[in-house]
Every structure is written in structure tokens, then in C-alpha cells.
Design a protein around this nucleic acid. Sequence first.
DNA 1: GTCTCACGTGAGAACGTATCGAATGCGGGC
DNA 2: GCCCGCATTCGATACGTTCTCACGTGAGAC
Lengths: 161, 161
Amino acid sequence: MSSDAPHRTATGRATGRPGDASPFALGLLLRQAHWRAATVMTEAIRPLGIELRHFSVLIVLADRGPMVQRDLAPATGSDKAGIMRVVDDLERKGLAVRKAVPGDRRVRKVEITPQGLELFHAAHVAAEPMAARLVADLEPGEAELLRDLLTRLAYPAGGDA
Amino acid sequence: MSSDAPHRTATGRATGRPGDASPFALGLLLRQAHWRAATVMTEAIRPLGIELRHFSVLIVLADRGPMVQRDLAPATGSDKAGIMRVVDDLERKGLAVRKAVPGDRRVRKVEITPQGLELFHAAHVAAEPMAARLVADLEPGEAELLRDLLTRLAYPAGGDA
DNA sequence: GTCTCACGTGAGAACGTATCGAATGCGGGC
DNA sequence: GCCCGCATTCGATACGTTCTCACGTGAGAC
């Protein structure tokens, strides 16, 4: 066993376990961490009757106001067809509405309803304790540090150099 | 603006944008970061003819040796049915083989082939420069710090308290 | 004999891609 | 200046693929 690694790199091989220092370690960690966060947040908003894909659309609508479906797709990271289904669900639940745009008869502006805003706020109340549990193993200040690092990783300067 | 938030929390509302301090910010960042990492890594190993779901199985097989499909599912975070198809693909490509276990005729041990190990190594070579580009916006040492924080977030002490 | 376990298969939902239909804006021809 | 094709764009739909959950079959444990 000691002779089969004569010129191994300093990064090592992927193991998918804690301590992995391979080129794939960061991606594997992100997958695992995202899976845990998504599981926790899904459970948090489940009592409200929606899933994360619906909620991410509500976030964009609540933050940036009424929006054309065309711009909604890249903003949520989904595609047009996926947005269609989510908006269909939101409309069926009365959380958002499609409104015609006076100037253009082909575009349809999506707008969050007061009911949707109410659910949006309720989700925050429900998610706050869960979010605190997520970072329970981190020291004070480390959660903010992690957010900063992730922000720079997720949104690289200059779009995507 | 100053009158509509009499008792707002210190965390604010979810925006899905950099600077978000809501309970959902971490999850949204993890989603975005994971999406970027997965996209980069998928491109890195695409020339090898496999996808990430195949490669994550190869990682486990290369790290822990031959493995029963039953244990392979939780190790990769996938479902048993999903493992089935992935192992089918790997077997078809000659990267892994199903072997009967002498004592138990129902279990089938999955083992990586020399060809699979070769591809496993080649993937590291291809992924290393991509992984470096992923963390290009981070200062020296911050990538290791991020890995440490993510490890503690993804694998909380005591399993999942 | 019965219970449990592991593998495999099937049905259903979700996701992404490709395509269609409707509408707008533009440019050439009259 | 007005009208008619043409490319573009948005919304919506259809299709193939992938993931998830539930069930069936064969093998081992008690």
C-alpha cells in the first residue's frame, strides 16, 4: 500500500468524506450541505402548503415586485417551463396572479397577492428557528463568515470569469 | 420606509440576492454555489463520458472498496433505484462490475474495475484546474476555511441533533 | 413456516429540451 | 404614408429523461 502512491498530488483523491482535499471535495460538500439545508427548509414551509420551488418564486416577487415570466426564469434558476408550472400552482393557491400588460398582449406580468405576502412573512417566522438549528455547530460569527465566502463563490466578480 | 417596520426582526426578509440576511439566505446561497460547482464539475468530466451521478458512485467505490448496493445508496445520497441505473451504466461502460457474494446469493457486491480506477484518476487531472477556477475569487486559505465550515454544516456532530 | 432483507421493476411526479401558436416590431414594396 | 411579409419574442405545450416512492420476487434468519 505504501508503494502504490509514488507521485500522488498534494490534493489527494476524492473520498466524499470529511477531510477530503481533492478537487471534488468542495462540490461534494456543497451538495451535502445544500441537501441538509433544503431538507430543513422544506420541512419548515411544508405546513404552509408549498415547496421550495414555489417559495423561491415568491421571494423574487416579494423582493423585486411584479415580474414578467421571461425574467422570472433566470432569477429563480429554473427554466421557462418550470416557471410555468410553479406560477400555475401559485395562481391556483391564490398566492400570485398573472396580469395582462397594457402595451404588450403577449407578456403576462406575475404579481404576488396579499395572501402570498402573508404566507411569505409566515414562512420567515417558521424558518427562523430551523435556520438557527442549521448553524448550531458553528461558532458565533462563523455563520456570517460562511455567508460571505459562499456569496463570493456563488456570485464571482465579473459575472463568471 | 421607517414607519412600516416597527418590530421587524434583525434578520430581514429573503431577497435571494447577495447581502440577504434572512433565514433562507444560507440555503439560497448553497443552492447557487452548488449549482455553479456542479456545472463546472459536470463539464470537467463530460469528456470522460460520464456524469456526476456516475462519478459519485465511483468515488465511494474507489475510497471504500467493493460495496453492496444497499449501502451504496445512502453513501451517495441517492435512491436504491437510482443506484441501480447508475451501476447498470457503469457496468455497460466497463467501469464497475457486479459480483456475487459467496455466502449470500441475494446480495451483489459492486466493484470498481481497473478501467474505472483509470477514469477515476483521469477525472482528478481534468477537474483540478476547474476546481482552482471555482475558488479564484477567494483569498489564499479561504478555500480551506470554507471547506471546514461546510464540513461542520454538512456533517453536524452527533449525526443530526 | 414466517419474517426480514436485498435486488429488481413499475408507476407517478418533476425537470429540461424542443416545438408550436400568438403577438409585436421592422423593412420593403406600393 | 400605408400595407404586407418576415424575423424575433413571449407564453404555452409536448416529449424524453431522471428522480422518487411503492410493490413483487427470491434468499436468508429464526
